[in-house]
Amino acid sequence: MQDFPRALKIVTVWLLLGTLVFLGVQAVEHRRTQPEFHALDGTLTLRRSSDGHFHWPAVLQGPDGRLEVEFLIDTGATRSALSAAHARRLGLPEGQVLRTATANGEARGHLSRVDLALTGGLRIDRLEVVVLQGLGDQPLLGMDVLSRLRLVQDGSRLQIQPR
């Protein structure tokens, strides 16, 4: 059997090297976008994500099951908010209908309650949340939860302690 032509060998080697570099860059980017947590002596430290925001993973529990989500920490939000899709998946009951002002304008929604367990040990049962139609997949962690904590931002790090 005849060997591969020299040019085909060179192209194959370059394609393999290119694939390895591509996969390496993808792995670094994936790691960079994941929330980073450190817990030490009751202090939780979050690292700012590549989108410029702080994210906090959590588990939501409703009548129809549990859902793992990643909250966007939103100090401008009075209440924590979930999408209507998340509320449906959890089987959350619809409470009082309301209109609220958001960064994207006025939104319609309703109140509901959910059990919240944030990574790092903070748990709030029956937290009243706003369920919004157009929120998308990123729930918001508002001041109703954040005001219970001591927050200290130092550049790209956010230190969180219970009050």
Rank of each mutant, 00 (worst) to 15 (best):
V21S: 11
T33P: 01
P57E: 05
T43V: 15
V69D: 06
R88W: 00
Q133H: 11
H53T: 01
R99G: 10
S147H: 12
V25I: 15
R163T: 13
R31C: 00
A7N: 11
I124D: 01
G18H: 08
R123D: 04
G18R: 07
H110D: 02
V13M: 10
T78N: 13
P63E: 11
T12S: 14
G142T: 08
R88D: 12
R150L: 12
L20E: 00
Q161G: 10
L122R: 10
L146S: 06
P93G: 13
V25A: 15
G52P: 03
R126W: 02
Q26E: 15
G24L: 08
H55W: 09
T43A: 13
E106T: 13
A39M: 14
S80F: 06
G18Y: 07
L111H: 14
F37S: 12
D51N: 13
L16I: 14
L158P: 05
R148I: 04
V11E: 10
L90M: 09
Q138K: 12
P139D: 00
R123Y: 01
H53G: 06
I10C: 01
I10H: 11
Q159E: 13
L67E: 13
V131K: 02
D144A: 07
I160R: 01
V25F: 11
G76N: 05
L8A: 15
G76A: 09
L44G: 09
D137I: 12
P93W: 04
E94P: 00
E70Y: 03
P93D: 13
R126M: 02
P139R: 05
G120K: 03
W14E: 06
D3T: 09
W56T: 06
L127A: 08
G91D: 05
D154P: 02
Q34W: 10
H53E: 03
L135D: 04
T19D: 07
E29G: 04
L118W: 02
L17Y: 00
A58S: 10
R79M: 13
V152Q: 12
I10P: 00
G142Q: 06
M143E: 08
P5Y: 00
L151T: 05
A77I: 10
N104G: 11
N104M: 04
E36P: 00
A81C: 12
Q159K: 09
G62W: 02
R48Q: 15
R89G: 01
G109C: 08
R66M: 09
R108A: 15
F37R: 15
L122T: 14
H53K: 02
V13F: 09
P63C: 03
T78H: 10
P5V: 09
G18K: 09
A103P: 04
V131Y: 04
W56F: 07
W14C: 15
